[in-house]
């Protein structure tokens, strides 16, 4: 190996940087080109379905059925107008926003409260109760349909948007990640001095702990919001009147109503996806950062 001659003379750091530049300029340029072609091709595969969606919702159904369309057309408003005749898409948007925002707020507040209880107090059976939280993360639970429908009927929550909001209070993933965050970020001495100043425990949580864990709460909340926005199975069987439908149900409704009116259906699909895509294009770094912040704990 050519670089082994330099070995004894230079420090390890220098050697390494030499070593990397040699590789970069020499053997790896063809490999690198292939690598970039591969990455770009994969990127195209990831974006292509969205591209088809965006392009197709701007063309008339006749054009969509007859040719491959690759540039935007002028028919979006026409498609949109036809779609909204039978699909109350903005009602769906409003329902989805109300449900997802309420679920996110409840999940964040009560998740943090529960995490605080686990992180900063000692009590009997604590680890056992925490094991239940963990256990509920790894068993299939959102699909126990017979039991869920029994609960929803007896609480009169069938065809009620609250049925998709209240359960968010118990979000195990929230507690799992936030517990360790509170343990690390909130020191016991802060609690002690607040107690000396006569703060009640509840006030300590509301006005001291919450502000301290806002970054972690915000990141976790993005995922709660997206999860709630995207959920399909539960709304599908709980909601049965159109004026209560969420966006995914509205998109499915558009398919049922318009079948081969491709332009109308594509515009409904696009409207159900665009909000999340717009949010992502503005804060992708933040979202991905949050994902890994949680994952490192594993």
């Amino acid at each position: 190996m050519s670089y082994s001659a330099n070995y004894s003379g230079s420090t390890a750091k220098n050697l390494n940087s030499n070593f990397y530049t040699v590789k970069k300029k020499g053997r790896f340029s063809i490999g690198k080109t292939i690598l970039y072609i591969f990455l770009i091709a994969l990127g195209i595969i990831c974006f292509l379905p969205f591209y088809f969606m965006i392009i197709n919702c701007t063309h008339s159904s006749v054009d969509i059925a007859q040719k491959l369309l690759l540039i935007p057309g002028l028919e979006f408003l026409e498609n949109y107008r036809r779609m909204t005749l039978l699909v109350p898409i903005w009602t769906g948007m409003l329902n989805s926003i109300v449900i997802a925002v309420s679920a996110t707020v409840l999940s964040g507040y009560f998740g943090a409260l529960t995490s605080f209880g686990f992180a900063k107090y000692k009590f009997k059976g604590k680890e056992f109760l925490f094991a239940i939280v963990l256990g509920s993360l790894i068993v299939p639970q959102q699909i126990a349909l017979a039991g869920i429908s029994e609960v929803m009927y007896s609480l009169n929550l069938m065809n009620n948007r609250l049925a998709l909001i209240i359960p968010a209070i118990a979000n195990p993933a929230m507690v799992f990640f936030t517990r360790y965050y509170i343990q690390a970020a909130v020191s016991d001495s802060v609690l002690e001095s607040a107690r000396m100043d006569g703060c009640s425990e509840f006030r300590i949580f509301n006005s001291i702990v919450i502000p301290m864990i806002i970054p972690s709460l915000a990141t976790m909340s993005i995922f709660t919001f997206i999860g709630s926005w995207n959920s399909y199975l539960l709304p599908l069987f709980i909601l049965n009147t159109q004026e209560k439908f969420t966006m995914p149900l509205m998109a499915a409704l558009a398919k049922g109503v318009y079948q081969n009116d491709y332009g109308a259906v594509y515009s409904a699909i696009a409207m159900s996806m665009l909000p999340v895509m717009i949010v992502f294009s503005f804060c992708s770094k933040y979202i991905i950062g949050g994902l890994t912040a949680g994952a490192v704990k594993e």
Binding site: F118, K120, S136, G147
Partner: peptide, 24 residues
């Protein structure tokens, strides 16, 4: 306060997750 703070979570977990699971 540990119990008090985790109570709402476990109440909802019991009603909307654990009970449906066991009942099913």
């Amino acid at each position: 306060y540990g119990y008090i703070f985790i109570a709402p979570f476990f109440l909802v977990l019991a009603v909307f997750t654990l009970f449906p699971m066991l009942y099913t």
